[in-house]
Design a protein around this nucleic acid. Structure first.
Lengths: 333, 333
DNA sequence: ATGAAAGCGCTAACAT
DNA sequence: ATGTTAGCGCTTTCAT
């Protein structure tokens, strides 16, 4: 087995506690001893056992990041933001993927209670399930939601200005002359979707347009979304504008339009939430609502470390809202 | 603090060892006691401390996955493949990102020696640094490379048929009538690149074409790649075909062509390695060499678990090669 | 079938 | 400034 503190101690004829303190850079230990220990440890390539240390200290030096997937450009950017601050704090980032499955999400959060992480950053999975597993976890460890959050769980959150973003996207289409605008939504109980939808409705109202229920398309089920969109766009009076509330739906809309030979933007204008670096390379270049993913990751991680360092809960959960940006491109020209 | 085995034992007037065994489903324990313990544990929502258990058992139930980034579609698909088999084996997957920085990679692998993971899956970072940190780690724990591997490190590996893929891409362009084909390469010491390049050379040779050094473009430095490509494509005698050896270069080539108003495929045909689901939505639809990313992740994880279960190294490192597929689209029409 | 005891490697009181 | 001791929560001999 590897080198342990005990071996170092016996080799150097010191007590294990002395070695432990020396390695931790304690000022209780004389500079000479400290240096002797540190040098010897390096020479034998001593690596402390992280789990033994965690067990004793009752902290892990890990933060857990729970997300639906990693293929979405928002999430991959956000991870980088999270990592940038975690690295600075000397923490490890452990990524857990739920694949938007609440069962898996539940299993993961349960597992956190076994003491693998000190705190959790999370963007919730779609679904109608209860949120008690989240609440139970949040009762034990600091939790910060980013982007996708549940209202009924008390926790800090980092969001974008979703109402405004939805408003801007819709307003933009109306300005371009769209007469009938479809809103592609996923799970309606998800807050960010409700907000984006609210923005959509507000914009229609401000332009004196009615909100029509049949223009709000539920695309919650990946398997049927393609057909749903196809039906929508081939009906006698199809929308001439589309607000896509998440990246996957944006790309799906493109796919369907391509398949149907529907010209974007002539037949239908498309604006979608997306952080794709290649939005400009799509056919046609895609007008996007781009969220500050990296900054959101940073902000969420910062909030979490604040909580970790306080070791006491803020009585009123913190909320941070960062603005998204509309990038106009050919898909809405 | 949480519920521990000790509390359960005292509550049930049993020894901790009895409780431990009962919870582990040992047949040393009578069915009645076992059930009594299990039920009580569930009723008080007992969660075992993962680190205490790891410390004692000397295994962690974690596998580490080390990759450059997560924004590349190959990697995000591969992660899903890895997770699918890890979940089945009851293991946790911990993802570590190197951002293609060998320093970070080294820090991560070093950290593994502190006993956070039982084995490692890895796609190496670009760079000229030594590989001793990898070798040292591989000496202590099972390691499986997938896709990006170093030749000089003895470890199992899961690769694609890179020579053939490079050959096919180049052959395809030649068939389409390209006269001068550029090969966009990254770090030449990376094996997959050498192989893809070899395929490129073989194809040229088979078509009786010379291999010209100036057609092999080194795009190792993200900051200068844009200018490098711009120079290449604006020189008096530019290539009329491009083989892009990694996804990021494929997208960069598109970006540069768009910026220069160079028509794809008329002015220059482009084929690139990529697993992007949206290749068909690009302008124009992109001809890709698509690797079986999910299957590679599965294969690599399977190899790792084999090693973990054997607890003994195969004397000759295993090698698994899966075929890539050429998807022909408009960018090479 | 159950229990007592030791110990994984480390840290932190508490002596000295 | 250094050492002694106890113990984090668990598993695993080795008794009984």
């Amino acid at each position: 087995m590897g080198i342990t503190i005990k071996k170092i101690a016996s080799e150097l004829k010191l007590a294990v506690s002395t070695v432990s303190k020396a390695l931790a850079g304690s000022h209780e230990i004389s500079p000479e001893t400290r240096q002797r220990v540190v040098e010897y440890a390096r020479s034998v390539d001593y690596i402390p056992n992280a789990y033994a240390s965690s067990l004793r200290k009752r902290t892990t030096g890990n933060i857990g990041v729970v997300l639906p997937e990693v293929a979405d450009s928002f999430f991959s950017d956000a991870i980088n933001g999270i990592e940038s601050v975690a690295r600075q704090k000397g923490y490890h980032v452990i990524i857990y993927l739920t694949h938007d499955d609440q069962q898996k999400e539940q299993a993961i959060l349960n597992d956190f209670r076994s003491g693998r992480v000190d705190g959790v950053l999370m963007s919730v999975s779609l679904g109608d399930g209860s949120h008690t597993h989240i609440e139970e976890m949040a009762a034990q460890k600091p939790l910060v939601f980013f982007d996708r959050a549940w209202q009924d769980v008390t926790a800090a959150r980092v969001l974008t200005d979703d109402v405004e973003s939805g408003y801007n996207a819709t307003h933009h289409l109306l300005e371009k002359g769209c007469r009938r605008i479809g809103f592609l939504s996923v799970h309606k109980n998800l807050n960010i979707i409700q907000q984006r939808l609210q923005g959509y409705k507000n914009a229609l109202a401000d332009h004196g347009r009615p909100v029509r229920d049949e223009d709000i398309i539920d695309c919650t089920h990946p398997d049927t979304n393609y057909d749903t969109l196809k039906t929508l766009l081939t009906n006698p009076n199809p929308p001439d504008g589309l607000v896509c509330s998440v990246e996957s739906l944006t790309l799906l809309a493109y796919r369907v339009c391509h398949a149907l030979n529907l010209a974007i933007p002539n037949a239908v204008r498309v604006v979608g939430f997306s952080n794709l670096g290649i939005a400009a390379l799509l056919n046609p270049p895609l007008t996007t609502i781009t969220q500050p993913a990296f900054a959101m990751g940073q902000a969420a991680a910062t909030l979490l470390f604040n909580a970790l360092e306080r070791r006491t809960k803020a009585d009123v959960p913190e909320l941070k809202i960062l603005p998204s940006v509309l990038h106009e491109r050919a898909s809405t020209q």
